[in-house]
Design a protein around this nucleic acid. Structure first.
Length: 667
DNA sequence: GTGGCGTGGCTTTTT
DNA sequence: GCCACGCCAC
């Protein structure tokens, strides 16, 4: 594409951003203002004007989806795949660097990635091994404690614990023990990828300098979602010479609760002198009315950088405040609809209502492919082939399918492992050799060890997908699942079949080179496949239907758009949520509502119930304060024909009672 | 080793 | 009200 053409499709502000001089460019990009376009065109612009070579460019996103989208849009703009240009998630890029520089990062070459579920299981074992009570010291809490500190760049030694503070002291000791376990067994959790990579660059000046010189242009998507360690990592990498090009929207910062620091934007302006702010305020998505509602709502927040979205489109229909059944009347497609809610628990009622009306739907959320039980079981076998000392994998499958290796036997192994500082695998060896078990337990255990050894030998020269297939057969998992209900068994078997397919289609990604490499036998492909499974857990559970209404939480709707949006449950205590009524949290709730509103292109329905069940009790609901923050003139009120009126006192305005009275049924 | 029962918790989620 | 998980009894 010629350079002028590259700019043709851009508006004035977008063009200004894309062609901005080489300073730190901060693009404040409102909802639907074309931020990905801006980012991808900037990269194409730098390349086509000869201001940068591909290998000078790094683009970072939060999700794999965003990274893939960006990569393919850049390729499309340039009419070819671009080599040397790095596009990836923060975690993906950190992982890539750690795989190359594992020595410098003080990791074993074959370090493994732990997903959150594995991390939790590991913590459970650590807490047990410390002799602590799981009830007082919940693994969940410890997990949060550890991840939050890693996200802030803090190791146990960086945390000052007052000895009087029993709780903090104890959590710290768990953190320490967990770190020790991870280091000893070569496992790395998600937060560790970032922190370890930050430390790698910080502590290796030559390496840092190399990458500072290489990546002169750093592009960051959704910058308002960066946490402390991500920010520090970026700062390190950008150095004194590099230039940042960041795209963000402070009004769409909704992940503060998981460590995102919206202040990083101000911090960046403080840390880098030559920053230049550009606003993208023209919206290409929604009607004027929807935008007016969104603008009015968000104006109630303090400390905004400030922007007002506008559109050339007509005003559009008023925002309805209302009740459903509209879906059946709609002329367009089912997938034009989205029902958005604050909490996952709300989805069930909609499911039931839609089921009853025979409207196909798709729920986002739930388990993803690589998170499913049967898949994780298979992955555990595969992990054991590579790493005998993977205690998590060992515990998971040692008795799955049943091999007469019960809890008691495993408990003994745990004891030996703890005492002698061994892995469970080594402990099993030791126990068998020193005849610590009765014949039955000893034989069963020996048979399991042999199975893994034999299997390793058997598949080591096969291509990846055959390795997976052989392990599936030898593990005995399939007959194991067959014992479950028929549908369940079939689903699990299908998923395992799909895993083999995934392995067949999997092409490894050489670390230093670019693009896709050749599949080859040995353990490298398997190792990469396992990384892939952890880092890209796959799409959220999808529908079997093509044409369906989309159901999801507001958080997962970010970045998407729909013709018609129903925002459900606009009630005090639910949205804004009970636990978020304090001012700073309330502002995040309001931004969440803003995100919800700006997902709609044509029609927006704001819904609230008069009453709903809350922990078993039926409660009256007060309409959300967010409703009253939208000018009444933009809203057309609709009242349902048959409101559930268990309360004498009439309530206004109205109600979304879809499915609330339907008897619950297991789906 | 499994099933039945009691208890607690209950916002949002990516990697 | 509902689910997930842990514990105990067979």
């Amino acid at each position: 594409m010629e350079i002028p053409h590259l700019l043709d499709s851009l508006n004035k502000q977008q063009r200004q951003a894309v062609t901005a001089p080489l300073e730190h460019i901060l693009v404040l990009a409102g909802a639907g203002s074309g931020k990905t376009k801006c980012l991808t065109h900037r990269i194409a612009w730098l390349l086509q004007t000869g201001q940068a070579y591909p290998h000078n460019i790094l683009a970072v996103t939060f999700t794999n989806k965003a990274a893939n989208e960006m990569r393919s849009r850049i390729d499309a703009l340039l009419n070819q795949p671009t080599r040397g240009l790095w596009v990836g998630t923060f975690h993906g890029i950190a992982h890539r660097l750690l795989r190359i520089y594992w020595r410098e990062a003080n990791l074993p070459q074959l370090f493994q990635i732990l997903d959150s579920d594995d991390q939790l299981r590991t913590l459970k074992r650590v807490i047990k091994a410390l002799g602590l009570d799981e009830k007082t010291w919940s693994p969940k809490q410890a997990q949060h404690f550890i991840n939050a500190h890693k996200d802030d760049g803090l190791r146990p030694k960086d945390i000052i614990a007052d000895e009087q503070d029993v709780k903090l002291t104890q959590l710290l000791s768990i953190y320490r023990a967990y770190e020790e376990t991870c280091q000893r067994t070569g496992i790395v959790d998600f937060a560790e990828l970032l922190l370890r990579c930050y430390e790698l660059l910080r502590d290796n000046p030559q390496l840092l300098e190399h990458y500072q010189q290489r990546f002169q242009h750093l592009h960051v998507d959704e910058f308002q979602d960066t946490n402390t360690i991500q920010y520090q990592w970026l700062r390190l990498l950008v150095g004194n010479e590099g230039k940042l090009f960041i795209v963000f929207d402070d009004d769409q910062s909704i992940f503060g609760w998981r460590g995102a620091k919206i202040e990083n934007i101000q911090q960046l302006e403080k840390d880098c002198s030559d920053t230049h702010l550009i606003r993208l305020e023209q919206n290409y998505r929604s009607t004027g009315t929807i935008l007016a509602a969104a603008n009015a709502l968000i104006a109630n927040n303090q400390g905004r950088l400030g922007k007002k979205l506008w559109t050339q489109d007509k005003a559009g229909k008023p925002v309805f405040q209302f009740i459903a059944e509209k879906i059946q009347d709609w002329q367009g497609k089912r997938q034009d609809f989205a029902i958005l809610y604050r909490t996952t628990a709300q989805s069930r009622q909609f499911e039931e209502a839609l089921l009853q009306k025979n409207i196909s739907y798709r729920i986002y959320g739930g388990l993803r492919f690589y998170e499913r039980l049967e898949i994780k079981d298979m992955l555990a076998y595969l992990r054991l082939l590579l790493h005998r000392d993977d205690d998590g994998a060992f515990e998971r499958v040692v008795n799955r399918p049943k091999r007469n290796i019960g809890d008691r036997t495993v408990a003994v192994l745990r004891g030996i492992a703890r005492q002698q500082g061994l892995s469970l695998w080594q402990a099993a060896r030791t126990a068998i050799n020193s005849k610590q078990f009765k014949a039955r337990a000893s034989n069963s255990l020996a048979a399991f060890l042999q199975l893994i050894e034999r299997l390793t030998e058997q598949v080591k020269d096969l291509p990846l997908h055959e390795q997976v297939e052989q392990v599936k057969i030898a593990s005995g998992l399939v007959p194991h699942y067959q014992k479950e209900s028929k549908e369940e068994a079939q689903r699990r078997t299908e998923n395992l079949e799909e895993l083999t397919n995934a392995a067949r289609q999997f092409f490894p990604h050489p670390l230093d080179g670019e693009g896709r490499g050749e599949a080859k036998p040995g353990w490298e492909d398997l190792s990469e496949f396992l990384d892939h499974a952890a880092l890209e857990a796959g799409e959220r559970q999808g529908g079997r239907f093509d044409d369906c209404v989309q159901l999801m939480t507001l958080h997962s709707a970010k970045g998407l758009e729909f013709q018609v949006v129903f925002l459900a449950g606009l009630e005090e205590g639910l949205f804004p949520h009970q636990n978020s009524l304090e001012e700073s949290k309330l502002q995040e709730e309001r931004r969440l509502c803003y995100v919800g509103i700006t997902r709609a292109r044509q029609l927006l329905y704001l819904c609230h119930s008069e009453s709903r069940y809350h922990y078993g009790k039926r409660d009256r609901c007060t309409p959300s304060r967010f409703l009253s923050e939208i000018p009444a003139g933009l809203i057309q009120e609709i009242r349902m024909r048959h409101p559930v009126s268990q309360f004498k006192k009439p309530v206004t305005p109205h109600d979304f009672q879809i499915g609330q009275r339907v008897k619950h049924r297991q789906l």
